[in-house]
Amino acid sequence: MQQLESSNRILVVDDEEQMTAFIATYLRNEGYSVTVAHSGVEVLSAFEKTTLNGYDLVLLDWMMPGMNGLDVCKQLRKFSDVPVIFLTAKTDEIDKVLGLEFGADDYITKPFSVRELEVRIRVVLRRRLPQAQTSIDVGEEPRMLKRGHLSIDFSKHAVYLNNQSITLTPTEFKLLCTLAKHPGRVYSRMDLLEIALGDEYAGYERSIDTHIRNLRKKIENDFSNPKLIVTVHGVGYKFGDPT
């Protein structure tokens, strides 16, 4: 694995060496620190010796020989919430939804503009920062928020269910914070898209449904009958009464 020098730390994983070299060079020139890997096995093997805390974001190719990107993402999600952006030649909506369901935060289809890629990276990295105020979600940020058996520590970017720590992706964390701060308030999908993903996000509205589904699997006692994150049919979602 080749280490390049700068600030925000990006891991680029693709079996095509020309592709990784091209992306790494562009991101280095934009001020990022870039590490390159060419297989999922190489990535996971390296993480056995280190930790994902050494990276701020992973750019992950979907179609690689051996262990593909979906398998790598699934393994990463067992022990890390590091943001993942898929690089994929797949363009069907079902494939994009599948990537999100496996824990990715975003995806970009090949061929792509490196300028668009860098914008996507900035948007996802921004979700790692302390909860930002938006035109929709204004108010003083609490340090700790409790809703029934669910606790959110904003300062530590941590979530606890029944006093047990649970791992959320940056997108899931921001969605949960937004909804939990205003129980009963209904947010449309477009509201949540703007708050959680940013107005620069070029995805589609229904991607929020996938992130909500993943979040429910982690925080609801009964995923098939959610009590915390409630669907308001024809509108969007709200945080229900956890008592």
Rank of each mutant, 00 (worst) to 15 (best):
G31F: 07
G99V: 07
V123I: 04
V230Q: 13
S207F: 12
R120L: 02
T20K: 00
I108G: 08
K156S: 13
M1A: 10
Y55F: 15
G148Q: 02
A104K: 11
R185H: 13
K78G: 08
G236E: 00
L11F: 02
H211L: 00
V235D: 05
R28A: 10
S80Y: 05
R216G: 10
P142T: 09
F22S: 03
G236C: 07
H149I: 03
K78E: 14
M1W: 03
A89D: 01
S80G: 04
M67R: 07
Y55C: 05
I10L: 02
R206T: 14
T88H: 03
G69F: 06
R213Y: 14
L87N: 01
P130G: 04
L60E: 06
S135R: 09
Y201E: 07
I166K: 02
K227E: 13
I85Q: 04
T178F: 04
P130N: 08
A37S: 07
N214H: 08
V82H: 04
D199L: 05
P142L: 09
E172A: 04
C177W: 14
V230K: 08
T20Q: 01
L129D: 11
K49Q: 15
E5M: 11
N162L: 07
D199S: 13
V186F: 05
K227P: 02
S155T: 14
S224V: 08
S33G: 11
V36Y: 01
N29L: 06
G148E: 01
P65L: 14
G99D: 13
D61C: 00
T20M: 01
T91G: 00
V13K: 01
N163F: 07
D81M: 01
I219K: 10
V72M: 09
L4R: 08
E116V: 12
A202C: 07
K174R: 15
N214P: 06
S113D: 11
I94A: 12
D241R: 12
T178W: 08
T35V: 10
N8C: 04
F47E: 09
M19H: 00
